[in-house]
């Protein structure tokens, strides 16, 4: 009996004690080319980092073309996702602790948080740009990382990042000493740091409510009457009316709005609009609620926008053009425009 067969049998006995013991060797050996194609991870010690190089200047050009639309020209935008850059001081580069993270209002960015430069390289290489992952060359990834590092003054403007210089960069990462491993939550046998007891009687002298939602936020998640079962001993509260008033009627309106909004949102998703337009923030095109704000009170807007969406075009929000949208029917297009102009609510 071969050793691997023996091992397979032992594991079978261990894990599947109830099943008949059989050799389970299945699958096949991976080829070196296959491993090379998929084994993309880069560890903190730079195992897995391919050779290559990119300059800050190259990175800036690449950034404008492929990253700035979502992250802003300086990685500062929070319209699509949290800012990548910011919160790093020169002192942090010396101490290796991002001081902002200990403040009352910490600036959490990719650069202020990351202890390791490998993390940025690995992530951009595996997943960015968001809408075209793994489309960058190795040198482009080096260039993008170099540009990000320069924005936080970790490297100078004439820097070239490559598989060797990246090791020097690691010694200047602003939060390189900021991470701790807490065994209590790393492993299921770990002990917690928050120890409570299960008191059963007279456990507190006074009970005071320290936080509650303000009345004006009552309907911020949409009408809660439409978010619980319609029958049964508890129902969703009609949040279109003030708490405790038991007033009537508006639910009718809400239900109708909610269902047309949900249908329009589905159209926008299915029609690919939301790939370029966020509900609130812009992506490639403007955010839907930005469009609503721009055309508020403009009676001609609905017809104008329907025509624009159909024909495509640029110049109103920037230089990037919207391609002609031929997918939605005329009726669907009208529903989409109404929905956008009413603020593109997600419910």
């Amino acid at each position: 009996m071969s050793r691997s067969l023996d091992r397979a049998m032992r594991s079978a006995v261990l894990v599947l004690a109830m099943l008949p013991v059989v050799a389970m060797a299945l699958g096949r050996a991976a080829t070196p080319e296959e491993i090379k194609a998929w084994d993309i991870d880069v560890r903190p010690d730079f195992t897995g980092l391919p050779a290559g190089s990119g300059t800050v200047a190259e990175g800036e050009v690449l950034w404008e073309a492929k990253c700035a639309s979502c992250h802003g020209s300086f990685g500062e935008s929070n319209s699509v996702f949290a800012p990548l850059v910011g919160g790093v001081t020169r002192k942090d580069l010396e101490t290796g602790r991002s001081a902002t993270l200990a403040s009352d209002a910490p600036t959490r960015t990719a650069l202020s948080m990351s202890p390791t430069v490998s993390t940025l390289w690995d992530y951009i290489n595996r997943a960015m740009p968001w809408n075209a992952p793994q489309s960058l060359s190795t040198n482009e990834v080096y260039a993008a990382v170099a540009y990000l590092l320069n924005l936080s003054d970790i490297v100078p403007a004439d820097f070239t990042l490559d598989q060797n210089s990246i090791r020097e960069v690691q010694k200047r990462m602003p939060n390189r000493n900021g991470m701790v491993l807490f065994p209590g939550l790393w492993n299921r046998k770990g002990k917690s740091d928050v120890i409570a007891t299960a008191c059963m009687k007279d456990c507190a002298k006074s009970i005071a409510i320290s936080s509650a939602l303000p009345e004006h936020a009552r309907n911020a998640h949409g009408n809660l009457a439409l978010q619980s079962r319609e029958w049964g001993p508890v129902r969703g509260a009609n949040t279109e009316v003030a708490a405790g008033t038991g007033a009537t009627a508006p639910i009718k309106l809400a239900a109708k709005q909610a269902s047309t909004a949900a249908a329009a949102r589905k159209l926008a998703e299915g029609g690919g609009c939301l790939g370029c337009h966020g509900l609130n923030a812009g992506i490639v095109g403007p955010g839907m609620s930005q469009v609503a704000a721009k055309y508020r009170g403009d009676a001609a807007a609905a017809a104008k926008l329907a025509a624009k969406i159909r024909a495509g075009g640029a110049g109103v929000w920037g230089e990037i053009a919207m391609p002609p949208q031929r997918g939605p029917s005329d009726e669907e297009l009208k529903a989409l425009v109404d929905w956008i102009l009413s603020g593109a609510a997600s419910e």
Binding site: R97, S98, A99, L101, A102, S103, P106, R108, M113, N175, G178, M179, V180, L181, F182, G184, L185, W186, N187, R188, G190
Partner: peptide, 15 residues
């Protein structure tokens, strides 16, 4: 990763 009051960040908090 969990930011603690002293500004350190707990990594690998999985449980």
């Amino acid at each position: 990763a969990d930011l603690m009051p002293d500004g350190s960040t707990r990594q690998y908090t999985s449980v």
